[in-house]
Write a protein that binds this DNA or RNA. Structure first.
Lengths: 114, 114
DNA sequence: TTGTTACTTAATTTCATGCTTAACCAAAAT
DNA sequence: ATTTTGGTTAAGCATGAAATTAAGTAACAA
């Protein structure tokens, strides 16, 4: 079938979870360690790390370990890809609506011209 | 802490499936009936309808039934909401990076001035 | 060197998702 | 009136995702 883009699957899947969106929200304000990221959540650390793995697998977040601390940050380019997918479809639709509107306006003018 | 916006859960969840994205892609080119939407997929009709229900539950797609034909279309406002969520976080991050860049440039100037 | 911090890995349980077939309904067509 | 078309409902099944606890490792601190 059309449009096999498995990276988008992983991105939107990652974004579907409120915990993971909250993590992205936190990271949009600056980098954070795993335990900083975990702090707001009432959830075990391994659970948080699994969410983080989903975010990294999707490419939305990256991380490096220095000493024993893993620091995470947003990958804006990946966010942008998801954003663009949505934007392209939406504007296609909207432009179609615009053309339809113009057509209707034109045919109304014809009616008036009779 | 959690779940400020459950509608976003449903939207991103809906977008995570390639079949459903292909449906949105199709609908971005204009409205379609259920069986038109189903045609490209090697999948039973009930399966297609279930995907459609996920799209409608999320608000990304709406439909009306006339006679025995259900016609579906995109809800651009919903697409836009998902788009905005991504855009806000990304631009927050990017602006932060810009400020950091300016700061670094400024401290380098100081070094040079010594 | 001993303990604490900051994760990491593994095993398990529970619940949701995506798909199927079968049966059903109601509008159109013949 | 009967059949076909377009869609709906229901039940069941296989898979995968989200969480848990328990146990382990490696860095750093006392």
């Amino acid at each position: 079938m059309l449009n096999q883009n498995p990276k988008l699957d992983l991105m939107f899947q990652a974004l579907a979870d409120p915990t993971r969106r909250a993590m992205i929200d936190r990271l949009s304000r600056g980098p954070a360690s795993v335990s900083e990221l975990a702090k707001p959540f009432d959830m075990s650390l391994p659970a948080v790390v699994q969410h983080l793995q989903a975010l990294e697998a999707s490419g939305l977040v990256s991380s490096q370990k220095v000493g024993r601390v893993r620091t995470c940050q947003i990958e804006p380019e990946a966010l942008s890809q998801a954003e663009q997918w949505l934007n392209e479809r939406r504007t296609l639709w909207v432009k179609r609506l615009d053309r339809l509107g113009e057509y209707l306006a034109a045919t109304e003018d014809e009616e008036e011209g009779k």
